[in-house]
Design a protein around this nucleic acid. Structure first.
Length: 712
DNA sequence: TACCTAACGCTATAGACAGCATGTC
DNA sequence: CTATAGCGTTAGGTA
């Protein structure tokens, strides 16, 4: 099927031909035949890299040409940016909406295509965003994530809400290969397009000692090192390919990258350039290790890395300079980063409470699908590593030839349903008990024929909780959200978090920094740090001195959850007391990326706490507002007056403060010249522009003078 | 005595969405 | 309540 024969706007067709795309891949053609351009709903279950995005893009342009508006839902922020870039510059107005990147919020509705994460769409729905009802085409990327235990229900509810709201909505759902695509297609009233066609041949096999066993052939690998897994890498590189190695833990990723680096020992100016950049920005051991590895052509990739380092690694790999990346599952689900050979070294992963658990077939497929770069590699290889003879057969049975798992609804979970039921009531999707159940009839859960009574019981319990918490009221069967409930729904926090926060804030405890942080870290919305044996001593010592500063009771059973939230709170306390990044990383055994993640989460929660304080504990409003600024910037209280200026962050504020400038007044008194000496004249000029310009309300009067003497 | 190595036991374990209002070094 | 690699400790060996 030729591009030229399709009902596409001229500009899009031209953009495709410019990129050498003239003909559709067979599965893409199947989508057109299944009714892509005639408004049919489609469930497209085809392998990674076989052109799903293009199908969606064509449908979106066709839709817009007919006066429609499109919403493209993705599971990750990084994916949102990737798709945003991809869709931009082809004649349509494209917008992006994610938690960290939505400066166009106001104008979002003017776009033809909006790319957003599922949580962001849910949030927009909760805030009654008007343009959502104009959406005529909904694209759901990675729809199989409806099965994700923690986030799947949100996706399911968002889909159900949008279908409920927008009559005649066309849905295009993109999925990995799953066991029961028929179920999902049935729910969505969609035509099913299924195929295992790929643009690059994929060979899957299991490796033992020095031999790759494929389905009907074997391939010997030269022994080049002490480690078999490394031999596989060196072999790929010797043939001019690149390698992606999936391992189960960060430590393994780093260890493998080190081994690969000393096995490869590459050296060229470009790699050296990357290594220098990483080294000069690195503040931690981890960063220096990465720099050393990258200099020799290998890298590791996990969530502890700071964003910039992650991007360098990805870029270096795309350019073909970095030959190997040893990665945790970060790369499995995330960006499009193909390699000739993918090695799945660890297929067991530690799972709290369960021990080592084999990864699902779907995840294996996800990783294996990364093998083979279209137009660049002659073929792709996905290789599992066996430790014994028997393992080879087992790996074939359990992964290579195994059918992928079925997808199941996750929305019957009581804790998760709680937040969604509240939002249904707060936004008027349901006004009575039966309407809640009626709405749930439209979910995948109900469609899969799960026990409706079980769901009813859960819904009843959830409603009882919400009534008890006074987030909703029930007047003669008529359900309505209270001001509290509506706020919780819009803040997008778990109602259980809100209850915990409100209860603690209205208790008779005095405000303390650690009290607030620990409270927020005890919330189900905050992920907490792992507690090691040697941390326990430190935690106990902290408790001995500061027990009475905590807002929450210490559980008598010395629960693990308590230790975890306390450790996390201590990390954040260090952050707002300007402890250096390297010290924090070492003390808590985390990477810069983890700090960033936790700071981001807690900033969101402090904001929520601030709004809740406005409703229930006005006396806490001011200190919590201060904490909001402090976590955002990672600064002590004493530099807050300075931080409010644009162009001043934690470093510059600290530098000014240490030079005796602790307030707006002091800044004025010092004058541009002296400030210029401290920070550089360009920045000084920008600061004084703000001071002289209309910004009369910037900063606060100096109220922190008492602590000044410490630094003078 | 200084130094190295093999053997052993212990320890720790992936990822990342959401508010709000604009700019860090 | 699983698997595995990395690491620290220690015993044993060698120059």
């Amino acid at each position: 099927m030729e591009i030229a024969d399709l009902p596409l706007p001229a500009q899009l067709a031209a953009s495709y031909t410019d990129h050498g795309i003239r003909e559709l891949y067979p599965p893409q053609a199947a989508c057109v035949e299944a009714g892509l351009f005639s408004g049919k709903n489609l469930l497209i279950a085809i392998p990674t890299a076989s052109g799903k995005t293009l199908v969606a893009e064509m449908a979106m342009h066709h839709q817009v040409a007919n006066g429609g508006k499109c919403l493209y839902i993705v599971p990750l922020r990084a994916l949102a940016s990737e798709k945003f870039e991809e869709f931009s510059g082809k004649g349509l107005r494209v917008g992006i909406a994610t938690g960290d990147f939505d400066r166009r919020d106001e104008y979002l509705g003017r776009n033809d295509i909006i790319v957003a994460t599922s949580e962001k769409v849910d949030s927009l729905l909760r805030n009654q965003t008007p343009w959502l009802s104009e959406i005529s085409l909904l694209v759901i990327d990675e729809v199989h994530l409806i099965d994700d235990p923690s986030r799947g229900a949100t996706l399911e509810m968002v889909i159900t809400k949008l279908r409920h709201k927008n009559e005649g909505l066309q849905i295009i759902a993109l999925s990995a290969t799953i066991g029961n695509p028929g179920d999902l297609a049935g729910w969505l009233d969609a035509e099913l397009v299924e195929s295992d066609w790929r643009p690059v041949e994929l060979r899957e096999g299991a490796f033992l000692l020095d031999t790759i066993h494929f389905t009907d052939s074997i391939r010997r690998i030269e022994r080049r090192s002490k480690h078999e897994d490394l031999d596989l890498v060196l072999d790929t590189v010797a043939e001019g390919g690149q390698c992606l190695v999936f391992v189960s833990s960060r430590k393994n990723a780093e260890a493998f990258a080190k081994r690969a680096a000393s096995g490869l020992k590459l050296s060229n100016p470009i790699l050296a350039g990357y290594a220098d950049w990483i080294r000069s920005n690195a503040t931690t051991d981890m960063g220096r290790t990465l720099a050393a590895c990258v200099g020799m052509g290998a890298a590791f990739h996990h969530a502890g890395l700071p964003r910039e380092e992650r991007q360098i690694v990805e870029q270096g790999f795309r350019e073909g300079q970095i030959k190997v990346i040893a990665s945790t599952p970060t790369l499995a689900a995330g960006l499009n980063l193909p390699a000739r050979r993918v090695i799945i070294r660890d297929y067991l992963r530690f799972n709290a409470g369960e021990g080592m658990v084999p990864i699902p077939v779907r995840e294996y497929r996800q990783m294996a699908g990364r093998a083979g770069r279209p137009h660049l590699d002659p073929y792709g290889e996905a290789i599992l590593i066996a430790k014994s003879d028997d393992m080879v057969d087992e790996l074939f049975d359990c992964y290579i030839e195994a059918p992928p798992e079925d997808v199941r609804s996750r929305c019957a979970d009581e804790a998760i349903l709680c937040t969604h039921v509240l939002s249904l009531i707060a936004t008027g999707f349901a006004r009575e008990r039966n309407e809640v159940l009626g709405f749930m009839d439209g979910t995948f859960y109900a469609n899969q024929g799960e026990n409706p009574l079980a769901l009813k019981r859960v819904v009843d319990r959830v409603l009882d909780f919400l009534l008890e918490a006074e987030m909703i009221t029930d007047v003669g069967g008529w359900l309505e959200a209270t001001e509290y409930g509506s706020l919780v729904s819009r803040l997008y926090i778990d109602p259980r978090s809100a209850e915990l926060i409100v209860t603690a804030m209205t208790g008779r405890k005095e405000y303390t920094e650690i009290g607030l942080l620990h409270l927020l870290c005890s919330t189900p919305d905050m992920s907490t740090l792992y507690v090691r044996q040697k941390d326990i001593y430190l935690l106990d010592r902290f408790l001995a001195d500061h027990q009475d500063e905590l807002w929450l009771e210490i559980p008598w059973d010395g629960g693990e959850g308590f230790d975890r939230s306390l450790k996390t709170a201590l990390l954040l306390a260090d952050w707002v007391n300007e402890t250096g990044e390297d010290t924090i990383c070492e003390r808590y055994n985390v990477g810069p990326g983890d700090i960033h993640g936790m700071v981001e989460s807690v900033t969101w929660l402090v904001h929520a706490a601030q709004r809740l304080a406005g409703l229930f504990a006005p006396h806490l409003l001011h200190p919590i507002e201060e904490m909001e600024l402090r976590v955002q910037h990672g600064v002590r209280r004493e530099v807050l007056p300075l931080i409010r200026l644009r162009g001043i962050g934690r470093v510059r504020a600290r530098r000014l403060f240490n030079n005796g400038i602790d307030s707006i007044e002091a800044l004025r008194a010092a004058g541009p010249e002296r400030v210029g000496n401290i920070l550089g004249s360009g920045i000084a000029a920008r600061i004084f522009e703000q001071l002289d310009g209309g910004g009369g309300e910037i900063g606060e009067p100096a109220e922190t003078q008492s602590t000044l003497s410490r630094f003078g």
